[in-house]
Computed example of a mutant assay.
Amino acid sequence: MSAAAPPSPRGDDPADEVDRIVAAWARERPDLDVAPLAVLSRVTRLSRHLDLARRQAFARHGLEPWEFDVLSALRRAGAPYRMSPGALLTQTLVTSGTMTNRIDRLASRALVERLPSPEDRRGVLVRLTDDGRARVDAAMSTLLEVEAGLLAGLPDADRERLADLLRTLVAPFDTP
């Protein structure tokens, strides 16, 4: 038999699983401040739902999440949609070996191509092909539809406030 759900801290919304987890830890370890769980456990759960939704959105266009990451970095660069592998590393936060493998795999699917760098005879640039651009554009449209659906329950003002709060929380991790 399951325990009764604790009342919501806000009093108006039903308690969720995180409320139950926080209450159980508070009961079992009253010596600990379990307040961070109320926020970060929800972020973790949301991340899992978002990851699944994104994977499904990208799959509709024959892309893996990592493929979308590389293609979208090239697309965001603007015409002529090309970057050095080093610049792609900075955009996607992977190692050079991983990036080389990713470029190889995308090139084998004709979604990107390698071009000689005009500034450095030994260097290369990675360019988005027309097919790569069409795929990333279609995947981006689908992604935005999916993500708008995930946020549909929040009024615009709450979305803006949540974005501001998350920016404040994430910003220290994004500074070099």
Rank of each mutant, 00 (worst) to 15 (best):
L63M: 08
D174W: 02
R10D: 15
L111H: 02
V22H: 06
L115W: 12
P36V: 04
R122C: 01
D164C: 05
D12Q: 09
Y81N: 14
G62D: 07
R167Q: 10
T168S: 09
T90S: 08
M140Y: 08
D12V: 12
P116Q: 12
R135E: 02
F173C: 04
A139W: 00
P9T: 10
S117C: 14
R121W: 06
L144K: 08
D137M: 03
A3D: 11
A38T: 13
D156F: 12
G11I: 09
A148L: 06
D69R: 13
A4Q: 12
A15K: 05
D131C: 03
S47V: 04
T100Q: 14
R20K: 10
R60E: 11
A24L: 12
D16P: 10
P9S: 12
R105L: 15
R45E: 14
L143Y: 11
D12M: 04
V43Y: 08
V43S: 02
H61Q: 06
T100S: 11
L74Y: 02
P155T: 01
A148H: 08
L106N: 09
L32K: 03
R133G: 13
G11M: 07
S72W: 12
G11V: 08
E64M: 11
R159M: 07
D33F: 05
A5T: 07
A24P: 00
L144I: 05
L162E: 05
R161K: 14
F58S: 02
D13G: 01
L106A: 04
P176F: 03
L52M: 12
A77K: 10
A24F: 00
R27N: 07
D19E: 14
P155G: 06
F68Y: 15
A77D: 09
R109Y: 07
E28H: 01
L143M: 08
F68E: 04
D104Y: 10
A110L: 05
Y81P: 03
F58R: 08
M1K: 12
V43H: 12
R48S: 14
T90Y: 05
A57W: 00
T98P: 02
A23V: 08
R109K: 15
V39T: 13
T175K: 10
A15P: 07
N101L: 13
D69H: 12
G153V: 01
I21H: 05
A35G: 05
A87N: 07
R27S: 11
A35W: 13
A24T: 05
N101T: 13
R76K: 14
P80L: 03
R20Y: 01
L151M: 14
P65G: 04
P155N: 02
T175P: 00
S84M: 03
T100M: 11
R121H: 10
S117R: 09
P80D: 06
P176T: 07
T129S: 12
M99F: 05
P176E: 07
A73M: 05
A35L: 07
M83S: 14
A3C: 04
T98I: 08
A57N: 07
L151I: 02
D16A: 06
R45G: 15
A110I: 00
A79F: 10
R167L: 10
A3W: 03
V94Q: 11
E64A: 11
